[in-house]
């Protein structure tokens, strides 16, 4: 992969929600999906072979401890290329940073089987496409006063609200606002979500990234975005009165 630093953002994001992951490798690319230990969030990723500068693979399941993977990826420097290489004999995944020389980390494989967890195919009445930075900042604002946030769609507006014991926060995005790329409102809806989870889900998002949010009424939220050619999908169960 061209940039190890970019891929680090992906590993940073999934490792806040998951402890371990089983990468399903095939000729088409790499995919994986898993629920967090408390079964509140689901993380799914898909890396098409095209996202790699070079990709040679046949079918394998590669179980990895994400804490170790994150530690290694944190050592990536800008301009490092990333090479992921399976050593079947030693049962290790080699993570190689290539730049002025080569640095190789060998991670022990975990005996995990590919998860049967799939993102369910649900129709959502509302879709918000928003600049990642604007959404992330609004979550940080909401975090000042509460540990959960209410996401609402009404009258062609997307609202992010937090109610503390004494203090409140509200962000409002209209269709014409610069932060909004697209707003499809089918029906008024509102759902409440834990802020720690939501902030973990957007951890790797930086300015220029666009997030797609699917929202229903007291329904799990679905979120999609791409980082470094990696397609990420998240589901988050709501808080319910």
């Amino acid at each position: 992969m061209e940039s190890a630093k970019d891929f680090k953002k992906v590993v940073d994001t999934i490792s806040t929600l998951l402890d371990e992951i089983c990468f399903e490798v095939s000729e088409e690319g790499i995919k994986a999906s898993a629920m967090d230990p408390s079964h509140v969030a689901l993380v799914s990723l898909e890396i098409p072979s095209l996202a790699f500068e070079e990709f040679t693979a046949d079918e394998h399941e590669i179980g990895i401890d994400l804490e170790a993977f994150k530690k290694v990826m944190n050592r990536a420097k800008s301009k490092d290329k990333l090479i992921l290489e399976l050593d079947e004999e030693k049962n290790k995944l080699n993570i190689i940073f290539e730049n002025t020389g080569k640095r190789k980390f060998s991670l022990a494989l975990l005996d995990l089987s590919a998860s049967s967890v799939k993102v369910p195919d649900i129709e959502y009445p509302n879709v918000v496409v928003i600049k990642g930075e604007a959404f992330k900042e609004a979550l940080k604002d909401a975090d000042l006063f509460s540990d959960y946030v209410i996401l609402k769609v009404e009258n062609d507006k997307f609202l992010i609200q937090a109610k503390g014991d004494l203090n409140d926060f509200s962000a409002e995005f209209e269709k014409d606002d610069a932060a909004i790329v697209n707003l499809e409102v089918g029906e008024e809806a509102k759902s409440a979500f834990n802020l720690d989870y939501l902030m973990d889900m957007v951890k790797g998002v930086s300015s220029g990234d666009i997030i797609k949010i699917y929202l229903g009424n007291d329904m799990p939220l679905k979120m999609e975005y791409s980082l470094a050619g990696v397609n990420l999908t998240f589901l988050l169960a709501p808080r319910i009165e």
Binding site: M35, S38, H39, V40, A41, L42, S115, S116, V117, K118, P120, I122, Y148, A192, N194, M219, P220, L235, A237, P238, R239, I240, E241
Partner: peptide, 14 residues
């Protein structure tokens, strides 16, 4: 106050 529910409360999952 609201209560956190699980994804399995909505879908057959996992």
């Amino acid at each position: 106050k609201s209560k956190q529910v699980k994804l399995s409360d909505f879908f057959k999952i996992g």
